[in-house]
């Protein structure tokens, strides 16, 4: 049994008592686009952060392409077991862009390829410029992040992650901090990635976008996965009353079509 991404028995708590994720078991195949929805505090973002290796987990393990790369280490209070080369196949984009303000757009893009992967400056620059061109950001290569709009910043952040050729991309509420009119340009980039069969895990509050991009939707609440279904089913005919109740609240209508 070897899924593309395999989360086994994951438990995450803060300070030992506040349990945010409890016995999460989750598998996905390459090319799937899993959107996680649920009330705030349900552990959606924490699950992404665990898959990225940003959180110390209490129990469980995570595998990518059959290789275990994160495992709880009960002996250490501070660290998990982490297989860094495998973890580096995972890319992530955050809500607040996290572009480095002392570097230009191009500088942000080529930093990790050069410093973490040892790629030459000329090769990294060439790839970065091609990618920026594809995303319509070529003219911004020399600009500093402070000079960009939120939508441009987030597209640069996506480009920065893509330049490392990730096997899977994690998107943690990437449009939540954006003005409404800037959301579509970021979602457009994600839809383009979907066309290229990029594997993705997406946390979002935008149900319409979720329905459009997802191959699978997960509803989570209280640190557990309550329901896991294709978008057509999840949004029209959810099995669990809690899911239905949540969707009713966020959509103000019974279903979206």
């Amino acid at each position: 049994m070897s899924s593309f991404l395999n989360v086994q028995g994951l438990r995450k708590s803060f300070g030992g008592h506040l349990v945010v994720l409890d016995d999460i078991n989750f598998q996905m195949e390459a090319g799937e686009r899993v959107v996680i929805i649920g009330p705030s505090g349900s552990g959606k973002s924490t699950l992404l952060r665990c898959v990225m290796g940003l959180e110390k987990i209490d129990k469980g393990r995570i595998e990518l392409e059959g290789a275990r790369y994160i495992e709880a280490n009960p002996k250490s209070k501070k660290d998990n077991f982490v297989d860094i080369p495998v973890r580096n196949k995972v890319g992530m984009v955050f809500q607040h862009y996290t572009l480095f303000p002392h570097l230009t757009v191009l500088g942000n893009l080529i930093l990790a390829p050069m410093r973490a992967r040892g790629e030459s400056r000329s090769s990294a620059t060439e790839r970065a410029m091609q990618l920026l061109d594809r995303l319509g950001l070529k003219s911004k290569a020399g600009a500093f992040p402070g000079m960009l709009s939120g939508g441009q910043k987030q597209r640069v952040a996506i480009a920065r992650a893509l330049l490392l050729d990730p096997k899977i991309m994690l998107f943690d509420e990437v449009t939540s901090a954006l003005d409404p009119e800037l959301v579509t340009e970021v979602e457009g980039v994600m839809l383009e990635l979907a066309e290229q069969k990029m594997s993705m895990m997406i946390v979002t509050h935008d149900m319409w976008f979720a329905k459009r991009i997802a191959t699978r939707v997960i509803f989570s609440a209280d640190g557990r996965i309550i329901e896991d279904a294709p978008p057509a089913k999840m949004f029209t005919n959810p099995s669990e009353p809690r899911t239905a109740d949540f969707l009713k609240k966020v959509l103000h209508v019974e279903t979206i079509s």
Partner: peptide, 27 residues
Amino acid sequence: IPASHYDACTALGLSPLKKTLFVILPQ
């Protein structure tokens, strides 16, 4: 410097030393 920058460094595969040298120190 926002804590999220440290997360971003990890997500980009920068080692603690490189994170300090190329992201934290210059900022």
